[in-house]
């Protein structure tokens, strides 16, 4: 298992606790946040590669949090978690640069696979950025493009 820095954001405390336990056992130690503000604070302080983000939360909602995360660090990959199944929200998320979205209830191992995919993509992005140097490519625009690409690929599987 790679050492992806994972952050799980959900307002369901028990879900955070159990998922953390399961993931620890399987080799990833995620950080957790129960709301958008906490999540942003953590991303500011510590390096985070992938965020699993619940769309519907009290306070700052998932879409807003996603936007702020991408503003903070465009390279952070975000997997949206939704219990609502709202197609519109999912599309909005993808437009804002989310890596994928997953319907609740989902399998933890499946979720972890998605996290790995996202992490791999982030690594590739970071690599490309390093090699491109300062040739003016906006990382954020790229992120949007790739994210959509990845999403369609993902769907076809």
């Amino acid at each position: 298992m790679s050492s992806a820095q994972l952050l799980i954001v959900d307002d369901e405390e028990r879900f955070l606790k159990t998922t953390t336990t399961v993931m620890k056992k399987r080799g990833i130690t995620p950080q957790t946040a129960s709301n958008g503000e906490d999540a942003l604070r953590i991303i500011e302080k510590t390096p985070v590669d992938v965020v699993v983000l619940d769309i519907k939360m009290p306070g700052m909602d998932g879409i807003e949090t996603l936007r702020r995360i991408k503003e903070l660090d465009p390279l952070v990959e975000v997997i949206m978690l939704t219990g609502h199944g709202s197609f519109d929200l999912a599309v909005t998320g993808m437009r804002l640069g989310a890596f994928d979205y997953v319907m609740k209830p989902c399998d933890i191992p499946e979720l972890m696979e998605k996290v790995e995919d996202a992490y791999a993509k982030k690594q590739a992005m970071a690599e490309r950025k390093r090699s491109n140097g300062e040739n003016g490519t906006t990382p954020r625009a790229m992120a949007v493009f790739d994210a959509q690409d990845a999403a369609t690929n993902n769907e076809k599987e």
Partner: peptide, 19 residues
């Protein structure tokens, strides 16, 4: 869709517990 959402959240917790 409201009901589905409200039920999906606890299902998610249960699923994590089962795992």
């Amino acid at each position: 869709s409201g009901i589905a959402h409200e039920i999906n959240n606890p299902l998610q917790v249960m699923k994590a517990e089962v795992t």
